[in-house]
Amino acid sequence: MLGYTIKRLLQMVLVLFVVSIIVFLMMSFTGDPVFMVIPIDSTQAEIEQARRLLGLDQSLFSQYWIFLSNLLQGDFGRSYVFRQPAMDLILERLPATMEMVLVAMAFATLIAIPLGVYAGANPNRTASRGIMAASLFGISLPGFWVGMMLIYFFSVRHPFLPSSGRGETIEILGLRLSIFTADGWSHILLPAVTLALATLAIILRITRAGMMEVMRQDYIRFARAKGASRTHILFAHGLKNALIPVVTIFGLQLGDLIAFATITETIFAWPGTGKLLIDSIYRGDRPVIVVYLMLTAFIFVVINFLVDIVYTVIDPRITVK
């Protein structure tokens, strides 16, 4: 277990290194960032000075070398635009994204799994067919459209939910959170639902497919022959055996939502990291983008590691080595 963890940590360092190179290279193709930070009427001398100040006069290789050596000292670079450490900018916004994503994932999972279990255990019932048909909408409707429709119905036609911002926040352990205030909840609801819809549909379909397979197994019949109740058979005997692909998808979706809730955050003016990313891309704020994408890679690696651990908890036949 310890060996496994160390191996995964080393893997993570390698992944982050590769990501940093790729992002650095790609950013150098997107134009000269110096034009994003200087006033339009700057003189040539001012441009050169800004370039020198930002270190953009050096070769790409030495720029990367400076970035890397600073990184190893815990310095992730400063935003060209905000003149603040890039990491601080991101971490400041991360709680907003995290709470929206966690609410969305909880919402998606709590609805998708019972429905998926039901549809998988009773594939021929009309209700199951209805659930499956509805899930197709969840998969195929684009998030931006769903978001706008929700705003139209719940904020414009029947205005009982706000359409933008985080609402009232309170500070807990140094984090500004809105899920502990009623106003915060009313703000989080629409973006979370928008974000949850696709994930809900995917998890539902994966759960159903797994359950259909599992319910044919002999041990399900044996459990019935023991006199176990239907609910117990479905959730204890059935679901646990169907859970491996569900956990896999859950992990991937979780990472995806944390990293790329950009569209939803933009629609609902949610002050999270996704919005920071899109703004930074517009402004060519390379340090922020690099750190952001490295953080994203880090989150994915950590989630995958946790998913692997969860596998071993679910199925004793799986061991980490």
Partner: peptide, 23 residues
């Protein structure tokens, strides 16, 4: 359900598949 397992029990054909692998 009260009959199954208490009054009447059943042994299945294939022992490789009649036990739940995750418990």
């Amino acid at each position: 359900r009260n009959v199954r397992g208490r009054d009447i029990a059943m042994v299945f054909q294939d022992p490789m598949t009649s036990l739940n692998p995750v418990y």
